[in-house]
């Protein structure tokens, strides 16, 4: 074996265990040194581990995408009433059009999981737009005739397309938001659900209670999971929707507060406001404004 590569020699022995000459040569070689025995053990381990490996590697990226499809498809389909199933079967037997009837009545849930790093957006079948924070999940039925979205976790901002004859619903935990055409933000937290209206009017319902919320002052409602009352704090909370709307509005608010909200939004260090101007009340509106320009506007308003 002197003129043969050690690894080839070991492979030769591993693949031809019935050959007594080779096994004898192997034993002789193993007895020569501890190093030989260690090397043999390693090669044997790898050789055997490799034999039990599947032929196709697992692509977890692709697997994840397929999993999302499976989850969306297998999520409980709304069960038809038994008589409907029977009726469908009968129709299928009697008429070719039964297939059409079946297809249009089979409701499927679509699950959506926000994947983008900052903000994801989704167009619903009715043309309404949803912005989602990372990791937020929601589901809705296809076809979307009932205009109902179930928010499962996270935070989402809804810009609902107006359609007077079809109310739009968002179900979030115990809370149900009923709307006609408006824009609002829903956030599910551990023990409560919070709704802020950005534009228009909605009705927030829970266990028979109802609270109507309009944009502007008093536009936030909170429902807690324990099933208590719906809370309705004072104030305008529109700026909490800025992650989705890129819209910041301040109406007659203290400069120090305005500066803090702006700094938080642009993720910049706290702005220094001169002591004598901290309590100055200012009104300003920023929409999709770049950071430097926002600073300039704030400085100008402060100087007025």
């Amino acid at each position: 074996m002197n003129n043969k590569d050690v690894t080839e020699f070991v492979i030769d022995c591993l693949t031809d265990t019935g050959n007594k000459d080779k096994q004898a040569a192997l034993n002789q070689w193993l007895q020569k040194s501890e190093d030989n025995r260690a090397l043999y053990a390693e090669l044997k381990q790898l050789w055997e581990a490799a034999a039990a490996v599947p032929p196709v590697p697992f692509d977890s990226e692709q697997g994840w995408n397929e999993l999302l499809q499976i989850i969306a498809e297998e999520t409980p389909v709304k069960r038809m009433f038994p008589w409907k199933t029977v009726a469908a079967a009968v129709l299928l037997l009697l008429l070719g059009t039964g297939i059409w009837w079946w297809q249009t009545t089979a409701v499927r849930w679509t699950i959506y999981i926000a994947q983008a790093a900052n903000r994801d957006s989704l167009s619903l079948p009715d043309g309404s737009l949803v912005y989602l924070k990372p990791g937020t999940t929601l589901k809705y039925k296809q076809p979307f005739s009932d205009r109902t979205v179930v928010l499962l976790s996270g935070e989402a901002y809804f810009d609902v397309k107006k359609a007077a004859e079809h109310t739009f619903f968002v179900q979030a935990g115990d809370a149900v938001v009923r709307v006609l055409g408006t824009a609002f933000n829903v956030r599910i937290e551990q023990n409560r659900t919070e709704v802020i209206v950005f534009e228009g009017k909605i009705s927030l319902q829970q266990n028979g209670q109802q609270l109507v919320l309009s944009s502007g002052d008093g536009n936030k409602g909170t429902v807690d999971a324990a099933g208590g009352e719906i809370l309705h704090p004072q104030g305008d909370y529109s700026n909490q929707c800025v992650w989705a709307t890129d819209d910041l509005s301040f109406e007659n608010e203290e400069a120090a507060h305005v500066a803090k909200v702006i700094a938080d939004y642009y993720k910049i260090p706290a702005l220094k406001i001169p002591e004598n101007l901290k309590h100055k009340r200012i009104t300003l509106h920023l929409h999709n404004t770049p950071a430097e320009q926002a600073m300039e506007i704030l400085a100008t308003v402060l100087d007025e």
């Binding site: 490996v53 599947p54 697992f58 977890s60 697997g63 994840w64 990372p134 990791g135 999940t137």
Partner: peptide, 19 residues
């Protein structure tokens, strides 16, 4: 139903589980 954590678990273990 925290999708972020769920995805992290999937990414970490799915290949081992496949094997």
């Amino acid at each position: 139903r925290n999708a972020d954590v769920f995805r992290n678990i999937y990414n970490a273990y799915s290949e081992e589980l496949y094997l």
